Computed example of a mutant assay.
Amino acid sequence: MNEDITLTLTTDEVAMLVDALEVDLEGYLESSKEAESTGNRSEVKTFNDAALRIQTLMAKLQEYVPE
């Protein structure tokens, strides 16, 4: 199911994706904190795993965003 794809994006489009991922990341980190406060370890792991995957993708994309 994990197939490589090729896309052509402008740097503005990549920057938009990075911004959206940052918001998504914040949501997962907040959800992880909430799950931790209620002692739900499985949700903490799920949210932390999602946050890590988002951070990894953001790192790949950020190299294409001009400063």
Results as ranks from 00 to 15, higher is better:
residue 56 T to D: 15
residue 37 S to M: 11
residue 63 E to W: 00
residue 58 M to V: 04
residue 5 I to A: 08
residue 51 A to I: 06
residue 21 L to H: 08
residue 39 G to D: 01
residue 45 K to S: 10
residue 39 G to M: 00
residue 16 M to P: 00
residue 53 R to V: 11
residue 17 L to P: 01
residue 16 M to V: 09
residue 42 S to D: 14
residue 14 V to L: 05
residue 40 N to M: 02
residue 14 V to S: 08
residue 7 L to C: 14
residue 22 E to L: 08
residue 45 K to E: 13
residue 49 D to L: 07
residue 19 D to Q: 13
residue 9 L to P: 03
residue 38 T to D: 05
residue 46 T to W: 08
residue 48 N to R: 10
residue 52 L to S: 14
residue 12 D to Q: 06
residue 23 V to I: 13
residue 15 A to R: 14
residue 67 E to D: 12
residue 26 E to S: 09
residue 50 A to E: 08
residue 56 T to F: 10
residue 50 A to F: 05
residue 5 I to R: 06
residue 5 I to V: 15
residue 22 E to W: 02
residue 27 G to S: 09
residue 40 N to E: 02
residue 59 A to P: 01
residue 35 A to C: 04
residue 28 Y to P: 03
residue 10 T to Y: 09
residue 31 S to R: 07
residue 61 L to Y: 06
residue 6 T to S: 14
residue 39 G to L: 01
residue 64 Y to S: 07
residue 41 R to H: 08
residue 5 I to Y: 05
residue 13 E to F: 09
residue 29 L to Q: 14
residue 25 L to S: 05
residue 58 M to F: 04
residue 31 S to I: 01
residue 61 L to V: 08
residue 16 M to W: 04
residue 27 G to A: 07
residue 43 E to V: 00
residue 54 I to N: 04
residue 12 D to R: 02
residue 56 T to R: 14
residue 55 Q to P: 01
residue 37 S to G: 03
residue 17 L to S: 02
residue 29 L to H: 06
residue 53 R to D: 15
residue 57 L to Q: 14
residue 24 D to I: 03
residue 15 A to Y: 05
residue 3 E to R: 01
residue 27 G to N: 13
residue 17 L to F: 11
residue 48 N to F: 05
residue 3 E to W: 00
residue 28 Y to A: 10
residue 19 D to K: 12
residue 57 L to F: 12
residue 62 Q to E: 15
residue 45 K to Y: 11
residue 49 D to C: 04
